[in-house]
Design a protein around this nucleic acid. Sequence first.
DNA 1: TACCCATGCTGGT
DNA 2: ACCAGCATGGGTA
Length: 163
Amino acid sequence: MKFAPWAFSLATPCGVLRVEGNCYFILSATLTPLTDEQQPDSLPAGPCELYNETRKQLDAYFNDGRNRIDLPVMTSGSDFQQRVWTALEKILPGQTMTYGQLAREINSSAQAVGNALRENPVALIIPCHRVVAANGLGGYAGETEGALPKIKQCLLAHESRQH
DNA sequence: TACCCATGCTGGT
DNA sequence: ACCAGCATGGGTA
């Protein structure tokens, strides 16, 4: 059952986190606002080690935002998108970087970086929320204002909170 | 504050 | 090959 796909949803202080994966990789992770309608699923038993490890790291992270999340992911995207996503590994919890700074590191442009981050299939695991605009928060998950940027702000606040 | 445009990457035609 | 649209940034008034 090593390839057994699994998924779970988890209520977090910043929204409902839904994670999908198999016993080798995380395949997707999305964070959506918690509404009365969509209650998180009950959590199924884990078919394999990666499931348990994922749950463990997420619990640790939401208990203390300074805890680093480091999980194997399998993502599909253009070469450029992969370049942007892997560049995020260096940004630790509580740290941020601007679109422009990241763009200079990989010889691209700020707006192109934003385009790639918008397509991040594994929210939180690839910490796209740690890239902000030069003049403010910047967008999240395709929105520049509204509920989704609030999730971004919530994550950043959680990571910088004193424990 | 607002407007304008350079920017590089994407998706559709 | 072209063109419009972006989770931006910098310049100018």
